[in-house]
Design a protein around this nucleic acid. Structure first.
Lengths: 124, 124
DNA sequence: GCTTGACCTGGACCGCACTCCAGGTATCAA
DNA sequence: TTGATACCTGGAGTGCGGTCCAGGTCAAGC
């Protein structure tokens, strides 16, 4: 008997709505999710594990389409690990660049803040 | 004679399309843009300056609605500087948090990369 | 037996930020 | 004078990532 999680449990755990969970399944991020005799979904540990990574990648703005590709590779088995690595390292690089960009923009914003503060200070 | 810029010049400078430029105007991010006798827009230095900040804030994911609020404050004059500061500092904080989140997620991704690499190394 | 709560389905709908389009005008160079 | 180029307008369309809804089912507790 494998441990299984209800949709409510999984949704709560990842801060996703039930609709989003089903949406991800429709989009092919998860497949072959088991069902209880009632027809309700039962997520297995492997689903939860994949979802964990999916959420991490989504939170860093990987598009659904790319996540689907990744999820398909996972399903195809261990020989797809090089392809998965390719996706992750590419994403990792993009992320590094994005963070650098945000930091740079943030500096500009902070300069503007400092400028406004100086204007206020001068008018006191 | 005030220096003025054509739509094409401004678009190129900020990496925006002409459509986006007009869209921003419709959305109230820019207003009262001057016109040449031909009816073509002529952006003044103050427009360009505001656009520079707008692009910076957009690039860091400030929504258009908030940018509109900010732009309205700019138009209302110097007494709105405290309100503008409020918007910028709030955004600055959100940005700090966002960057921290991205960095954290990136670590997770890098661990996954390292894991995949170790799997490949072991199977060699 | 009846309600309550959790979940099911297919499909419509949403907000956001653009992006595209048709049909028109102004300026200029050859 | 004839293009070519740059721009104009109003309005429709797009892609993304969900979100919502109606109408149902199932299991448990009162």
């Amino acid at each position: 008997m494998e441990t299984a999680y209800t949709p409510g449990e999984v949704a709560a755990r990842f801060g996703l709505s039930l609709d989003t969970l089903r949406y991800y399944e429709r989009e092919g991020l998860l497949t072959d999710v088991e069902r209880a005799p009632s027809g309700h979904r039962r997520y297995r540990a492997s689903d939860v594990e994949l979802l964990d990574l999916v959420r991490c990648l989504r939170d860093t703005d990987m598009p659904i389409s790319r996540l689907r590709t990744f999820a398909e590779l996972v399903r195809e088995g261990g020989h797809t690990i090089p392809a998965r690595l390719e996706i992750l390292t590419t994403h990792n690089q993009a992320l590094t660049e994005r963070i650098a960009e945000l930091r740079q923009r943030q500096e500009t914003i902070q300069h503007k803040i400092a400028y406004y503060e100086s204007v206020l200070a001068d008018s006191d």
